[in-house]
């Protein structure tokens, strides 16, 4: 279990609040460079809040989020993005007042090493066809998800936070997104994935953390998956 590498992201005793309600009660986990890590858990376990807390867009948070040797707690979300983290929200966040191209080009490049538009269109050929489309929100759900992922690949961010990228999508599109995540991993991206769809997660993840009541309660590697199936079912209620 001991890992001698330096984690790219290290979350320690992360607590977060929405107004009065205390959502995260001390979350701990690490992600190493080049890994795909999945947060699993039931609805309301705090998975999305964990991503938002890393990104600095919840009301109040304490504890420590270290990324690339910088402490992110206390930084505003624009500074966190510029440190090299990109966020793809659950609701996708496609802008209705922007056309497809404007949506794609919206996130600024924060450093070199991002994907070129050509590379993004190789991953998502549909996007290229829809480029002239008027309104970003007129795209189908799958295309919107591709746009939401595609636009953060340009920025040069090294850590991608993907919140339920397969939610509500057709199986063939879920497959395409799975392929994309594998390609991104091969290119050296580090990915933190939040998923309800455990079957999908098991095709891409190196490691899993299970969350319950605002805490990480279990951690296991992909190789331990078979041995842990019982535990998983217990936690996820599937």
């Amino acid at each position: 279990m001991l890992d001698t590498r330096m984690p790219l992201l290290s979350v320690n005793d992360l607590q977060a609040w929405y107004g009065e309600s205390h959502i995260l009660h001390g979350v701990n986990f690490d992600i190493f460079p080049g890994e795909v890590v999945t947060l699993l858990g039931r609805n309301g376990a705090g998975k999305t809040t964990t991503l938002k807390s890393i990104m600095g867009i919840v009301g109040q948070r304490t504890g420590s989020v270290r990324f690339d040797n910088q402490e992110l707690i206390g930084k505003t979300s624009d500074k966190i993005a510029r440190a090299g983290i990109a966020f793809c929200p659950e609701e996708r966040g496609i802008f209705a007042s922007l056309n497809v191209e404007e949506n794609l080009l919206l996130p600024p490049q924060i450093r070199s090493g991002g994907l070129s538009l050509e590379q993004i269109f190789t991953l998502f050929p549909n996007l290229k066809e829809r480029l002239g489309s008027s309104q970003g929100t007129k795209l189908s759900g799958g295309e919107q998800q591709m746009l939401a992922i595609g636009r953060i690949l340009r920025t040069g961010a090294r850590l991608l936070l993907l919140d339920e990228p397969t939610e509500g999508l057709a199986p063939v599109i879920i497959q395409q997104i799975g392929k994309t995540i594998k390609t991104l991993k091969a290119q050296g991206f580090t990915i933190l994935l939040v998923e309800q769809n455990f079957r999908f997660a098991s095709t891409v993840a190196d490691r899993y953390y299970i969350m319950e009541h605002g805490k990480v309660v279990e951690r296991f590697e992909n190789s331990e998956l078979d041995a842990k199936t019982e535990t998983l079912h217990e936690y996820l209620g599937v």
């Binding site: 979300s77 966020f87 404007e102 919206l106 600024p108 924060i110 920025t155």
Partner: peptide, 16 residues
């Protein structure tokens, strides 16, 4: 326009 629609997300893209 994007910041008018969803300032939180635009800021999380690194825009001040």
């Amino acid at each position: 326009r994007a910041a008018t629609e969803n300032p939180t997300l635009v800021r999380a893209f690194g825009i001040n």
